[in-house]
Design a protein around this nucleic acid. Structure first.
Length: 267
DNA sequence: CAATCGTCCTGCGGGC
DNA sequence: TGCCCGCAGGACGATT
């Protein structure tokens, strides 16, 4: 399940592989409901690829753009040479030079939205994404948090309108690294804890990007069809024991999401 | 305002 | 052994 580091990795690799290429054909397979906008508008040269929150934004030379959200099981895999599609392949982009990009999504939660480039900003605004965590200062983070005194920290970190890009893995990893229980209410956090949490988020995200993301459940792969390397650095997510004190980790449900934490190291 | 629940979807694991 | 139920999980909308 791609979160900020995975989407960032995909953006970086795709930029190298397909920026400048011309989309000659778009094939949609059992995914009509997940595609919005005029498909013919996508047949143009890709001029730029960006990321906002967990969204990929592709700009085209014909004043159109398209957005891709991978949700839980989306993959974008690039093939230089002919390759047969898999049962989970929902969209095939074919470029003028014959190379192709497969959009795989076996649970079909993802989407492709095609729109005019000038509409992208208002779309993002409408979605109401919070700030990018890696472009946020410690002071801004603190100010943001104090605006939600009654919220519990871990679900709040996953709230895309509060902070953009953290999902279930990195929100719980950040809480562990900061030594904070995921259930803590914002108003109970000390200045010191907020600072530690900010640093934890910066560290987790940048290190995961450096390792090209987390492939724990094997659904995430890079455009080169390779797993990310951050799995080895996970401290709590789907782990048995605390890497620091060896206490058996607790698993609770928070906002409907399973959440792992160390009852000894997190206060 | 915060929290929970249902929804979308499908593979897989647990339980009987 | 085989089948069925239910869970996981991002994000949104409706309800408590």
């Amino acid at each position: 399940m791609p979160e900020l580091p995975e989407v960032e990795t995909i953006k970086d690799q795709l930029s190298k592989k397909i920026r400048g290429k011309i989309i000659k054909d778009l094939q949609v397979i059992d995914y009509q409901k997940n595609v919005q906008g005029r498909v013919k508008d996508i047949l143009a040269r890709i001029t730029d690829i960006k990321r906002r929150a967990k969204l990929l934004i592709f700009h085209l030379a014909n004043r159109c753009s398209f957005l891709i959200h991978l949700k839980l099981t989306g993959q974008l895999v690039y093939h230089e040479k002919p390759k047969e599609i898999s049962p989970s392949t929902k969209i095939v982009f074919t470029f003028q030079d014959g190379s192709r990009l497969f959009f795989n999504d076996f649970r079909k939660f993802g989407f492709l939205k095609i729109m005019e480039t000038r509409e992208v900003e208002s779309y993002l605004k409408k979605e109401g994404y919070g700030p990018e965590p890696l472009e946020l200062s410690s002071e801004e983070f603190k100010r943001l948090l104090t605006g939600k005194p009654k919220a519990r920290i871990k679900p709040l970190l996953m709230d895309q309108t509060f902070l953009a890009g953290l999902g279930n893995i990195y929100a719980q990893e950040a809480c562990f690294l900061a030594g904070i229980l995921p259930t803590r209410i914002i108003s109970s956090l000390s200045e010191e804890e907020i600072k530690k949490l900010y640093q934890a988020i910066q560290k987790i995200l940048s290190e995961s990007i450096r390792h090209q993301g987390t492939s724990f459940d094997t659904t995430y792969v890079t455009p080169e069809n390779k797993p990310g390397g951050f799995d080895a650095y996970l401290k709590v997510y789907h782990q048995e024991k605390c890497s620091s004190c060896h206490t058996k980790l607790k698993i609770i449900s928070l906002g409907g999401r399973s959440t792992y934490y160390c009852p000894k190291c997190q206060k």
